[in-house]
Design a protein around this nucleic acid. Structure first.
Lengths: 337, 337
DNA sequence: GGATTTCAGTGAAACCTTTCACTTCTGTTG
DNA sequence: CAACAGAAGTGAAAGGTTTCACTGAAATCC
C-alpha cells in the first residue's frame, strides 16, 4: 500500500524542513553533505517517489514530448522514433509515441491529449494539412515541429526532399528502359505521397515521355495489405496500358505488391520492376531485394528533436528553420535489368 | 502566448462559481442546460484547456498506462502495442510506449519514470527476471501485468506457450528429415528465448535424437543484424557438425540469417532450412517466405490490457490470473523439402 | 573588531483541479 | 400552509512539489 509518501513526510523523518528536501532533490550541491545523507536515507527508508504530476503543475509544463506518427507498424517511423528518443533522453525528456494511424480524428485526439498534458513540445507527421489545433498549440507557447514534411517560414520542419526522391526513382526506371510506369500510393492528402508523385511526373517529363506514361494507382493506406491489393488492379489493366515498372510511395506497399506478384507467378523485375521508398531494413531481405529510396531516418528524428529543443529553450530568439535532407537511391534486384 | 487559462478564469468569465465549471466538465447532467451553454461558451472564448497535471495530482493517479517492450523496431511488439492501445482507448486511457531495447538499465529507468508519473498500470515484457522495482510498484498499488511471459501465482501475466512453440518448430524440422539442428537466439536471460530453446530440446529428445543434435548459437540481441552475423558462425563449423536446419528465436534473426545465407549463394531450404518465430508480416514477404511460429499478437495485447483493467478496477477482489495462448506453426517455403 | 559576505536551511505561497458539505430556491405533498 | 424534497449552484479544502524571500550562523575582509 505505502500510502503515498510526500516531501513533507521525508522532511519530518529526516528532521529538516521540506525546502531542504526539495533542495536535495533538485540542487544537491546547495546542501551540506551530512544533511544530504540524512535526507537521502529518509527517502530510502520511506520509499519516497517524486510525484511528477505535482512537479509539472508547479513547473507549468511537462518533461514529455509527443511524437505523432502515421503508422507505428511502419519501421520507418520506429527508426525515426529511436532517433528522437535518443536525443530527447540526453536532455532528460521522455517521448510518448502516438499513432495517428493515418486518421485525422485520431490525430486530433492525440493533439488534445498532449495539450492537456502540457507537453514540452510536439513532433508530428501530419495526416493532412497543418490544422488550426496545431497553430493554436504553437501560439500557446508549445513548440511544434513538422517531421518528414516541409513547411513554410512560419514553423520548424525537418524533411527529406520527396520530390527529388520521386524523380530519382522514376528516372532510374526510365533509365532501365521502361516506358510505362505506375505510381502506387495514397491517400494523396498525405503530403509526402503527392510530392513523390510530383517527382515521378517531373522525371517522366524530363525524359520526354508523354503524361500517359505514368499511371497513378491510388491506395487507401500506405501498408502491406494495400500493396497486395494493387496486384489485382494492375492485372485488370489491358496489357498495352499495363506498367512494366512501378514506383511505390513506401516500402510497405512495395513489399505487399511484391508478395502478390510472386503469388501470381510473375517475375520481378522481369514482368514488373518495383521501386520502394524508405529503405527499411526489410527491403533488403525481401523475396526480391528491393530497390528503394533511402531516407536518413534516425538523423531526421535527431534533427527534429534538436530544433524542438532550440525553440523550447529560447522561444524569443528562436528563428523557425526548415531542414531538408536529400534522399538516395539504393539499387537492388527488384529493378535489375 | 495565452497565459494559461484556469477554471477560475472560465468561472469569472461565465459568471458562475468554479465548482460549476468543474461540474460542466465532469458531470454535465448536474448542470442546467442554460448554465452549461454559458460555461461552454466561456471555455471556447478563452481557449481553456484542462490541466492534466492538476487533475492527476487531485486524483492521485494518472490516466496513462506504460507499455515497456524489448524492441519497438520489432513488428511483433508494435502489433502488440496496437492491441493494447485499442483496448486502453476504450476506457479513456492512453498508452506510453517505452523501449527498453533489451537493456536492464533502460528498463529500470522507464520503470522509475512510470512510477513518478503515478501510471495507472504497467504492462511489461521484462528484459530479465522480475525485478524488485516491479514488486515495489505492485506493492504501491499500481497493477503490473507481465506480457509475453508466464509467471507464478503472485502476478498477472499473458503469454504464449513458448516451450510448445519451440517444440512445434523443431518437431517440424525433424519431420522434414533434419538430424542436425541449430537453435539461434539470445541472450538466454530473456525468458522467451530460453523457453523456446527448452522446447527445441524437448523435441529433439522426443524424436530419440542425441543431445548433440541441437547446436545452440547464442546471439547478443534479437535483431536482424545479429541474425546476419550468425551466417559466419555457421560457416565456421566443420561440415559434419554444421546444422542443416535452424530454428531462430524470432523472425528478425531468421530474416537476418536468410539475408546472409542468400549472400553466400546458399539455397534455403536446400542448404539450410530456417524456421522463425512471431510470424511478423514481413516473414511471408521474405526472400524465401519464412516458416514461422505464429503468436496471436493483438489478442495478447488486448488480454493483457483487460487483466490490467480488472486489477485496477477492483484491487481487493482481484485474483491474479495467468493467461496462456497456444502458438501455431505456419509452414512456408523456407522449410519445404 | 566591526562590517560584510557566504553558506545552510526555513516555510509560506503558488500551481490548478476536483470533491463535498453546504446554501438557496422552487415546487410538491399531506 | 407548514414541512419537505430535489435541483442547481457555491466555495473552501486538499493534493505534492518548487520557488523565493528570508533568518542565523559562520567565515572573511580591511
Amino acid at each position: 500500500m505505502s500510502e503515498s509518501v510526500s516531501v513533507v513526510d521525508v522532511a519530518a523523518h529526516a528532521g529538516v524542513s521540506l525546502g531542504t528536501v526539495s533542495n536535495v532533490l533538485n540542487r544537491p550541491d546547495r546542501v551540506a553533505p551530512a544533511t544530504r545523507d540524512k535526507v537521502m536515507r529518509a527517502i530510502r527508508e520511506l520509499g519516497f517517489v517524486r510525484n511528477e504530476a505535482a512537479r509539472q503543475l508547479r513547473a507549468g509544463r511537462s518533461r514529455t514530448i509527443g511524437l505523432v506518427v502515421l503508422d507505428v507498424g511502419n519501421p520507418f517511423f520506429t527508426d525515426l522514433a529511436k532517433g528522437v528518443e535518443t536525443t530527447a533522453g540526453k536532455s532528460g525528456l521522455s517521448v510518448i509515441l502516438c499513432n495517428s494511424n493515418e486518421d485525422n480524428d485520431r490525430e486530433q485526439h492525440y493533439l488534445s491529449l498532449l495539450q492537456e498534458q502540457r507537453a514540452f513540445g510536439i513532433l508530428i507527421t501530419p495526416v493532412g494539412k497543418v490544422t488550426p489545433t496545431m497553430d493554436a498549440i504553437r501560439r500557446g507557447g508549445t513548440p511544434v515541429v513538422l517531421v518528414d514534411r516541409g513547411s513554410t517560414r512560419r514553423q520548424c520542419s525537418v524533411s527529406v526532399n520527396d520530390r527529388v526522391g520521386g524523380e530519382l526513382a522514376v528516372a532510374h526506371l526510365i533509365g532501365q528502359g521502361h516506358k510505362r510506369i505506375g505510381f502506387v500510393g495514397g491517400p494523396m492528402s498525405i503530403n509526402q505521397v503527392s510530392e513523390r508523385r510530383a517527382g515521378a511526373r517531373a522525371a517522366v517529363h524530363a525524359a520526354g515521355l508523354p503524361d500517359t506514361a505514368l499511371t497513378v494507382i491510388e491506395t487507401p493506406r500506405l501498408d502491406v495489405a494495400s500493396g497486395r491489393d494493387v496486384g489485382d488492379r494492375l492485372a485488370a489493366l489491358p496489357v498495352r496500358q499495363r506498367p512494366t515498372a512501378v514506383f511505390c510511395a513506401n516500402d510497405l506497399l512495395a513489399l505487399g505488391l511484391l508478395q502478390d506478384t510472386t503469388r501470381r507467378q510473375l517475375s520481378v523485375p522481369g514482368d514488373l520492376a518495383i521501386v520502394g521508398y524508405d529503405d527499411i531494413e526489410f527491403a533488403a531481405a525481401a523475396a526480391v531485394p528491393l530497390t528503394s529510396v533511402r531516407q536518413p531516418r534516425a538523423q531526421l528524428g535527431q534533427a527534429a528533436m534538436e530544433l524542438l529543443l532550440e525553440e523550447a529553450t529560447d522561444p524569443r530568439a528562436h528563428q523557425h528553420r526548415q531542414i531538408v535532407f536529400e534522399p538516395e537511391l539504393i539499387v537492388r534486384e527488384s529493378t535489375a535489368r
